[in-house]
Computed example of a mutant assay.
Amino acid sequence: MTKAMATACLAFLFPLCAGAAEPDAARFELQRSGDHFVRLDKQTGAMSICQDKDGNLVCRMAADERAAYDAELDRLSDRVTALEKSVAANEGKSTLPTDAEVDRSIGIMERMMRSFMGMVKEFQNEEQTDKPLPQKTRALYE
């Protein structure tokens, strides 16, 4: 590849890479509130408190959101711990039904289907013994 071709490739790809690295400017909204800013993430609805520190805008979660975040994190951590204990307790044990349980279930379903099909046959026999239904359609041209 020549130097000119490499330069052309870089010139073409650089704007694409630069655009991908930039955050969406319309995603956040800043509002001044006293000596700090409130930043709203329009995609997620999360709010942050931001302050200017040495020319940089430093943001942190709002207190009530942080408490909700910590509570959810604790809940998920407890759930993971409970699941890990459950897996450890069942190690080596199969949670699949035994052959006897499968056979029993199939037997129950078979009896249910035979009973259902018997009822269907009874209804069909009743319809055949009843008198014929009157015709409810008329000829279009009488």
Rank of each mutant, 00 (worst) to 15 (best):
Gly92Pro: 00
Gly92Lys: 03
Asp64Glu: 11
Val80Phe: 05
Cys59Phe: 07
Pro23Glu: 00
Phe14Met: 04
Arg60Ser: 09
Met109Phe: 15
Asp41Arg: 13
Val102Leu: 14
Glu84Phe: 02
Leu96Ser: 10
Gly19Lys: 12
Ser48Arg: 04
Leu40Lys: 12
Glu65Asn: 08
Ala8Val: 05
Asp35Cys: 03
Pro23Lys: 03
Lys93Pro: 01
Ala46Leu: 14
Lys42Pro: 05
Leu40Asp: 07
Gly92Gln: 01
Gly34Ala: 09
Ala82Thr: 08
Met47Tyr: 08
Glu110Val: 08
Ala68Asp: 06
Glu72Val: 05
Ala46Trp: 02
Arg79Ser: 15
Arg39Ile: 01
Ala8Pro: 00
Glu65Asp: 11
Asp103Leu: 07
Arg32Ser: 13
Arg104Val: 09
Asp64Met: 07
Leu76Cys: 14
Phe14Gln: 01
Asn56Pro: 00
Ala8Ile: 03
Leu16Gln: 07
Leu10Thr: 07
His36Arg: 12
Arg60Lys: 10
Thr95Arg: 14
Ala11Phe: 01
Asp74Leu: 10
Leu30Ser: 15
Gln51Tyr: 06
Met112Asn: 15
Glu72Ile: 07
Arg111Met: 13
Asp103Tyr: 05
Thr44Ser: 15
Cys50Lys: 00
Val80Ala: 10
Arg32Leu: 09
Ala68Ser: 10
Thr95Cys: 11
Leu73Phe: 14
Gly34Asn: 09
Asp78Pro: 01
Asp70Leu: 07
Ser105Phe: 13
Lys42Phe: 13
Gln31Asn: 10
Ala88Tyr: 00
Ala100Leu: 04
Phe37Asn: 01
Leu76Val: 15
Met5Tyr: 01
Val38His: 00
Ala88Thr: 04
Val38Cys: 00
Ala8Cys: 07
Asn90Ile: 02
Asp74Cys: 10
Arg75Lys: 15
Lys93Ile: 04
Arg60Gly: 09
Ser77Met: 10
Arg60Cys: 03
Ala89Lys: 09
Leu76Gly: 14
Tyr69Lys: 09
Gly92Trp: 02
His36Val: 02
Ala63Thr: 02
Thr81Val: 08
Lys85Pro: 00
Ala18Met: 10
Leu10Pro: 00
Ser86Gly: 06
Ser94Pro: 02
Leu76Pro: 06
Ile106Gln: 11
Leu96His: 14
Thr95Ile: 15
Lys53Trp: 05
Ala63Tyr: 01
Thr95Val: 15
Tyr69Gln: 10
Asp99Ile: 02
Asp54Leu: 02
Leu73Cys: 13
Arg60Asp: 02
Leu96Gln: 10
Arg32Tyr: 11
Gln31His: 11
Phe14Val: 03
Gln31Cys: 03
Phe28Ser: 04
Leu10Ala: 08
Lys93Leu: 11
Ala62Cys: 01
Thr44Trp: 13
Ser94Trp: 05
Asp52Pro: 02
Ala67His: 03
Phe37His: 04
Ala63Trp: 01
Ala20Tyr: 11
Ser77His: 11
Glu84Cys: 09
Ala46Gln: 08
Gln43Asp: 13
Ala71Tyr: 06
Ala8Met: 07
Leu73Glu: 13
Met109Ser: 15
Phe37Pro: 00
Ala88Asp: 04
Arg39Glu: 11
Leu83Met: 14
